[in-house]
Computed example of a mutant assay.
Amino acid sequence: MVFHSFRHTFEDAAQRSDLPGGVIAALGGWDVPGGWGAMDGYGRAKFAVKLAAEVEKIDFEGVRL
Rank of each mutant, 00 (worst) to 15 (best):
M1I: 00
M1P: 04
V2N: 13
V2M: 14
F3M: 12
F3E: 15
F3K: 11
H4G: 08
S5D: 15
S5N: 13
F6R: 04
E11K: 03
D12E: 15
A13N: 05
A13P: 04
A14Y: 02
Q15W: 09
R16E: 09
S17G: 01
D18M: 08
L19A: 00
L19G: 04
P20Q: 04
P20C: 00
I24Q: 07
A25C: 00
A26H: 04
L27P: 03
L27I: 03
G28T: 07
G28K: 13
G29F: 08
W30R: 15
V32D: 06
V32K: 12
G34W: 06
G35T: 01
G35S: 00
G35Y: 02
G37Q: 02
G37V: 06
M39V: 13
D40G: 09
G41L: 07
G41C: 00
G41W: 09
Y42T: 10
G43L: 07
G43W: 01
R44Q: 14
A45T: 13
A45N: 06
K46N: 11
F47W: 15
F47G: 10
A48G: 09
V49M: 14
L51E: 11
L51M: 12
A53T: 08
E56D: 04
I58W: 03
I58Q: 05
D59T: 14
D59K: 15
F60R: 07
F60L: 08
V63F: 13
V63S: 10
